[in-house]
Amino acid sequence: MAASTRSQVIALYRMLLKESQKFPSYNYRTYALRRVRDAFTANRKVADPQSVERLVEDGRQALALIQRQVSIGTMFKAQKMVVE
């Protein structure tokens, strides 16, 4: 992986975690954080530039989706869960 792509992927990963952290719902938040981490771990070894590019694009779309869903979730907050 080229150095520029590498830093791009790391930045995307950080952004995804940062945005996922904002889900007000306990279950959505923990799921998003877990899923992002697991997806990046699973694709750690991907070397083919085209696959990397495709995954980065998927990640970007996921980031936009998370941002939209976080704002919706913030509008309709519920009580905290007993485990929080």
Binding site: A78, Q79, K80, M81, V82, V83
Partner: peptide, 11 residues
Amino acid sequence: TLEKDELRPLY
């Protein structure tokens, strides 16, 4: 029903 400041049961 749950009160406003009560904790939600887990699902």
